[in-house]
């Protein structure tokens, strides 16, 4: 079985390696940076590298499709990010293949694949069976990265040309540690009354040597931050995730479920977050956080 994967981070490429081990397949990768290629050739049986074009879905898809024509994969996987889903839709549409998103588990049974995917905003899990070839978007963090090393081939794709449509990119600048790299993430939800109150969350993340973020309403509706954690934002897999004043809606939780430990602070004992937390404190964040900071500062 041939598996083709598109990806942008080493962590994800190693997760793809795990999937290929589960399915007992050969793994082909297509990546968009030379920087990644040293590591990629140890993860993929064969790596295709292209460079020099900004991400633009139509252009990237054309390149991935070219690689696909050479390999004719049985399974093509993308990360379940917005970029990954967009590429997957173009790709599957072009090949008239089934495309499944939010996949968290795969099993192989001869010519069919059984995939578990999240549905209803992450509240439910559906098991579906599909006949190959298939395109799938996998939730990052659902599979443990594999450390198996191979001695793969590499091919540089030249004659890529320019973006098919006019594109400008402004990279996100992080204050402190990037969210997806932090061991500890503290996030604020609508339990916070004003933007200034987030200072206490920032301070807590600094003292814990971690990163901070918010739920979507705080970013998208109130404009208190450029990014948020969730299905439509950033997906994280830290050692500790601390949710403060967050109710725990599926579209948010889907992105934090791979955290090793989840801690919640919420004044509502019935908040759904408590049923997905390892540790929780029922109480007013405006009372709890200042006291907690005080104690931690003394340590």
């Amino acid at each position: 079985m041939k598996i083709l994967v598109y990806g942008e981070t080493v962590e994800w490429l190693k997760q793809a390696r795990s999937i290929s081990e589960i399915l007992d397949g050969e793994l082909y990768g297509v990546i968009s940076s030379r920087e990644l290629s040293n590591q990629a050739t140890r993860i993929f049986d064969k790596t295709y590298v292209f460079e020099g074009v900004k991400y633009e879905p139509n252009t990237y898809h054309k390149i991935i499709q070219e690689v696909s024509q050479k390999i004719k994969p049985d399974l093509t996987i993308f990360p379940s990010t917005i970029k990954g889903r967009t590429l997957a839709g173009l790709y599957a549409g072009h090949l008239s293949q089934p495309v499944i998103t939010d996949v968290i588990d795969v099993k192989r049974d001869d010519q069919t694949l059984e995939m578990s995917r999240l549905v209803y905003g992450g509240g439910c899990i559906a098991k579906i069976r599909l006949t190959l070839p298939v395109t799938a978007c996998i939730i990052q963090g659902a599979f443990k990265p594999s450390d198996k090393q191979v001695n793969g081939e590499v091919e540089y794709l030249t004659s890529i040309g320019k973006e098919l449509i006019w594109t400008e990119f402004k990279k996100r600048e992080y204050e402190g540690i990037p969210l997806d790299k932090a061991d500890i993430v503290v996030a604020a939800g609508r339990g916070f009354k004003k933007k200034e109150d987030l200072e206490i969350v920032k301070e807590l993340s600094t003292i814990l040597n971690g990163a901070w973020s918010v739920t979507r309403p705080l970013a998208a509706d109130y404009g208190w931050s450029d990014t948020w954690i969730g299905i439509s934002g950033v997906i994280i897999n830290p050692k500790i995730y601390i949710a403060v004043g967050i109710s725990g809606q599926p579209l948010h939780m889907i992105a934090v479920r791979n955290s090793k430990t989840i801690i919640a602070v919420n004044k509502d004992p019935n908040a759904p977050i408590f049923s997905e937390a390892d540790y929780g404190v029922i109480g007013d964040l405006y009372q709890i956080l200042p006291r907690l900071l005080e104690k931690l500062r003394k340590k």
């Binding site: 899990i125 559906a126 098991k127 937390a277 390892d278 540790y279 109480g283 007013d284």
Partner: peptide, 17 residues
């Protein structure tokens, strides 16, 4: 083939402030 609620196993140790 199957559709059910997604439940995650967590410790659920809760303290009341």
């Amino acid at each position: 083939e199957e559709l059910k609620r997604y439940v995650v196993q967590r410790k659920k140790i809760i303290w009341d402030a």
